[in-house]
Design a protein around this nucleic acid. Structure first.
Length: 292
DNA sequence: ACTATTTCCTGGATGC
DNA sequence: TGCATCCAGGAAATAG
């Protein structure tokens, strides 16, 4: 399940491989709801665009694109005024291609002769002769296009927010702190694994109401989130459920997991068995002794 | 205005 | 071996 560190790793890998390349052609599986934008809009936007950069926003991969053929589109739009607004993204000279990997989404760069595996939903032909493919068995991933500046990835970037902002974000919320951490509208990029791992390191139980936490506890949580995310990025993310980066390499942060996926196993600090509770439909792992 | 629950998906694990 | 059932979970949609 790609969260911030995995998406960061993938985006960096993709940038290294395809920045500067151009999109020549696009094929889409047409399997809704993989596409958040209309497929026709994606097909109108991507071909002939140059990939300026690939980066991460929250859990989204953002391809910054540049189009030169804008005049052609404007000319065509003159005769059909109603399309001007609707084809806005395709019109933009600096569109963005937004990819959310969901649970099982993968982006791979390969040669065209590579077998097209089951659940391939997009194939992007590049001028260099390679292909960029989006593969997503469970189809929780989403593809969309937008004009530059339109895309809102959610709340604040966890690694850009300062301590005071972080405290303000959560203080006073009645919801469990774990749920608040997962809320992308507050902080964008933290998912189930890193929420659990951050809460363990801060010594806070997932079910604690955010409003019941002291400033000191929130500050400790802030430090934990920073530490966990940075370390996870340094290790290339967590490889669970066959996650691999853009180069097909596994990450190693799963070796640093202290509670996630360790139900019943002894806490690495105090040996108390790790507990698992379901919190708003999601598994939450914690040490009942170390976390209060 | 908030918060909680349901829904979308398929592969892998489990149970009989 | 085969078949049914359950579970994983991000975020949008829906309900409270």
């Amino acid at each position: 399940m790609p969260e911030l560190p995995e998406v960061e790793t993938i985006a960096r890998g993709l940038h290294k491989r395809v920045a500067g390349d151009s999109i020549e052609d696009v094929w889409l599986s047409g399997k809704s709801p993989t596409f958040k934008s209309q497929p026709r809009e994606i097909l109108a936007t991507l071909p002939s665009a140059r990939i300026v950069a690939v980066r991460r926003m929250g859990k989204h991969i953002v391809f910054d694109l540049e189009r030169n053929g804008v005049q052609r589109w404007k000319a065509r739009a003159v005769g059909r005024r109603t399309r001007i607004g609707k084809s806005n993204e395709a019109m933009s000279s600096h569109p963005q291609w937004i990819v959310h990997l969901g649970m099982t989404g993968r982006m791979v760069v390969c040669v065209p002769s590579e077998e097209v595996v089951k659940h391939t939903h997009a194939i992007v032909k590049l001028a260099s002769g390679r292909e960029l493919r989006f593969i997503d068995p469970r189809r929780f991933g989403r593809l969309s296009v937008t004009a530059r500046g339109n895309f809102e990835a959610g709340g604040l970037e966890p690694l850009e927010v300062d301590r005071g902002q972080f405290v303000t974000l959560f203080r006073g919320r009645k919801t469990p702190i774990k749920s608040a951490l997962l809320n992308q509208k507050l902080l964008r990029g933290v998912g189930n694994i890193y929420a659990d791992e951050s809460l363990f390191r801060a010594g806070i139980r997932p079910r604690r109401r955010a409003s019941s936490l002291t400033r000191e506890q929130l500050e400790r949580l802030y430090a934990s989130v920073q530490q966990v995310l940075k370390k996870a990025i340094a290790l290339g993310g967590s490889s669970v459920s066959d996650y691999v980066d853009a180069d097909g390499e596994e990450g190693f942060f799963q070796l640093e997991h202290r509670v996630y996926g360790r139900e019943g196993e002894p806490c690495l600090v105090c040996k108390t068995p790790v507990k698992r509770v379901v919190l708003s439909g999601r598994s939450s792992h914690y040490c009942p002794n170390c976390q209060r």
